[in-house]
Design a protein around this nucleic acid. Sequence first.
DNA 1: TGGTATTTGTCCGTATGTATC
DNA 2: GGATACATACGGACAAATACC
Lengths: 239, 239
Amino acid sequence: MPKTKYIEIYEDLKHKIEQNIYEYQQLLPSENTLVKEYDCSRNTVRRAIGNLVNDGYVQTKHGQGVRVIYQDFKQNEYMFGETESFKEFARRNHKQHETKVILFEELTVDEEIHAHTLIPVGVEVYHLKRVRYLEGKPVIMDHNYFRKDVVKGLTAEIAEDSIYQYLDRELDQRAVTAKRKMVVERTTEEDETYLNLDGFNSVVVVTSHIFNSDGVMFEHTQSRHTPGNFVFFDQTRRK
Amino acid sequence: MPKTKYIEIYEDLKHKIEQNIYEYQQLLPSENTLVKEYDCSRNTVRRAIGNLVNDGYVQTKHGQGVRVIYQDFKQNEYMFGETESFKEFARRNHKQHETKVILFEELTVDEEIHAHTLIPVGVEVYHLKRVRYLEGKPVIMDHNYFRKDVVKGLTAEIAEDSIYQYLDRELDQRAVTAKRKMVVERTTEEDETYLNLDGFNSVVVVTSHIFNSDGVMFEHTQSRHTPGNFVFFDQTRRK
DNA sequence: TGGTATTTGTCCGTATGTATC
DNA sequence: GGATACATACGGACAAATACC
């Protein structure tokens, strides 16, 4: 499984930045220097740098150089969001986790479901409600719709473990693009029944549309998070 | 002000997707076709497509093509976040807006301020508290720290209009990279005094670190949003 | 102040690999 | 197996912003 050259360079530079070999506010070696160092073309170096810019690790300036703007504030410990599953998230943070399925049904999308999921009318789907526990506390309530023609043979047992592991291992399917919308809403009775709200009268509602490698939107999920456990990071640049 | 070729192609394709000339789930013309159409190199076409992938407009698949996955759900009408100022946001949505400065002071960063802003100890800063009104309702409370050596000559009057307009027009300074962290917190007495919370007992706290083109982190802001008015969009892809 | 070197930004052409049809 | 399509990589040329002397 040979990695590509630009990914190797990207990861090497990233590690050097994280380990302060290249320090905050310092300039990286020039592109031409890196070309010699990694024995590759300038385009390849530039591609690696472009990824670091997207990650908010460095910032380039025309005629001047590439400046490190990475600061460690434990982004990795939390970092919800991204295209990461609940199980992966829990594992990475060494937290005990569990999922309980409280509804599992199969149905056909009608106009009403289409209106809020954008899944075409007539498509057959699994509809689930699941409660996610972290360290024994119920912190997320998921309302899922999965297309049956993509997520074939889903069962409640699988849904209590990891649907994404099943997709990847059994069906050779993967989530590629995830589009998300986040809002905060007042709690419903259902939220209050199932979640540990800790005094909050609101939940963070993350609505996701998820596409597989064929460009099919195979999942629509509304995740209702208890506010106390929700953290989201993001970095943008302009120009 | 001549735009670059790949930006022109990127914007042209983007418009064609938004106007359904290239439809949802359809494949774009192949890269080689687009090369002829735009009379440019394949690299340039690929660069334009790469930007559309980042925007969540299309998804590429090796050996198959570039598929449109854009769906219009009024992303443009709201879309807080990004590197957009409050004033720009209000203008774009045709909302009446206003800002009131409730604290304006100049001070020197000590250990305590450094700990939560990451601005180096000893740096002189402006410290402001501002309340932002949308359609007459107080919806955001900002706690700002600006470096005086970058944001020279800031006054309360400027802060009631638009600091970013002042930066751009008078000081030729621009925000380039913004790093954000979002959490939900219980309201403080100050929140309750100044904001229209509409029954919520929480606020969305967005902590931002903002860098200018020289890589200097010149602003640290904590924005406390009333939950009812907060919307955030995001798209990610993996692999 | 001004000219030169350095550095990043854009663009082109070509070759090869690999997945899909 | 052959054609098509995207992915990676190389090398070169010139422009534009900045730094240096």
